[in-house]
Amino acid sequence: MQITQVQLDALKEIGNIGSGHAATALSTLLQRRIDMSVPKVWTVSLDNISSVIDQLDSLQAVVYVKVEGGAPGKAVFFFPIQSAEAVVQALMGTDEGIDILGSELAQSALKEVGNIMVSSFIIALTKLSGIPLQPSVPALAIDMAGAILDAVLLEEGTIDEEILFIDTQLTGIPLIEGKFIFLPNEGTLNKLFGVLGL
């Protein structure tokens, strides 16, 4: 699918507003400052997937929420494991080390973080487009980032040679970094461009 410059700018703006809401939600939740990069809207070919996730076998906690409704897609948060621990620590108001893999409470807290962030993203996207959207129940995986990304990409049993990512880097001060990715499903881009008159 060919995307014009105007459409690309619109997607960046959608990413900007949506991710901005998600970052604000995280900031409110954790009571700390969260900075956000300018969203990157880019198409990546399969053999170049490592440009999305630097280290495909790095241990990360990933929250995956499906965006359902008129403009479906996938919202995915990648937190390097230390950052995920920092998020849970900030939520629970503790400095003690947390073993995320071993703690169901920590895992459920992370899912809730994902849920709140995606809901904020969705509310922004719905306001902007007028298309009603709902989040699915969040799913969490703690494993190699690349393995998790491939499972998200392949879930429907099909995959294109090139994938469009709307990709925002989040940085909390101190010590939290994360990546928020929105992957529009097939047809979603056209739907969004349609309602935006592009």
């Binding site: 129940v137 799913a139 998790i148 499972a151 879930e155 429907e156």
Partner: peptide
């Protein structure tokens, strides 16, 4: 060939792995 995610209450239909 792993199954990395399970959504509560929804069995994985496609079992890609």
């Amino acid at each position: 060939g792993s199954q990395m995610f399970t959504f509560p209450g929804k069995p994985p239909v496609l079992r890609i792995g």
